[in-house]
């Protein structure tokens, strides 16, 4: 029944999916945190930039962003991201696009976490003479992160599935292999089921583990 799987490297395709997910997750966590810091910061220009970035980027379809990195940045402006091998360039472009998109959601999740920290905490820290960066990094963000593990897990699961959009610019991940197999094997339903199962295998443990972590680290108030 599953003999159509022969001759295809499913592991390699899903490994690329995992790599895309992990690299984009790390990147968007960093960039998203910076954006959140800008949005709650005291400098109007930075607040404006953060707000504009989040509201523009999260309202553009991901396909458009990913296609722009390739057709716009790469094909038209010649950006190669330090590699003249097409596959590597495409992979990096996809990670770039995914970071740009996902960080908007990370930023908003984190900002809601910052709002859960009682304002007295920040005021007390200010009263002790800490400056903005110190208040944020030493007092507010550690508590904020602990309360948004759940929402961030949501973003991570969405990101895992969003990596399939990278197939649009030819990154050899799971969705691209699926297209290839459907083209060759004429087994639409079974092939789709196999790939759906693969993604569930990736995302279900993510959700369970992070759900457990979220309970473990939540700040009891």
């Amino acid at each position: 029944m599953f003999d159509f799987l022969e001759g295809y490297n499913l592991w390699e395709a899903f490994w690329t999916t995992v790599q895309l997910t992990v690299l984009s997750a790390v990147g968007s966590l960093i960039w998203g945190t910076l954006l959140a810091a800008m949005r709650v910061g005291p400098v109007p220009l930075m607040r404006g930039f953060g707000t504009a970035y989040v509201n523009i980027v999260r309202n553009i379809p991901l396909t458009v962003i990913i296609l722009f990195t390739s057709l716009g940045l790469n094909q038209t402006f010649g950006v190669e991201l330090g590699s003249d091998v097409t596959d590597t360039t495409n992979f990096r472009l996809a990670v770039l696009g995914l970071i740009a998109y996902t960080s908007a959601f990370v930023c908003e999740a984190l900002r809601s976490g910052i709002n859960t920290v009682p304002v007295g905490q920040a005021e007390a820290a200010r009263a002790l003479g800490l400056n903005f960066t110190q208040v944020l990094t030493l007092v507010v963000l550690p508590q904020a992160f602990r309360s948004v593990v759940g929402p961030l897990a949501n973003v991570l699961i969405a990101l895992t599935k969003n990596t399939t959009v990278a197939a649009a610019i030819g990154v050899a991940e799971a969705a691209l292999l699926m297209k290839e197999m459907i083209e060759n094997e004429a087994q639409l339903v079974l092939i789709s089921a196999v790939f759906a199962f693969g993604f569930v295998c990736l995302t279900l443990p993510t959700g369970l583990i992070l759900g457990w972590v979220s309970k473990k680290v939540a700040v009891k108030r």
Partner: peptide, 11 residues
């Protein structure tokens, strides 16, 4: 050869 793959030929 290096292969770039897109969704449509127009791209």
């Amino acid at each position: 050869a290096q292969l770039q793959q897109y969704q449509t030929y127009s791209q």
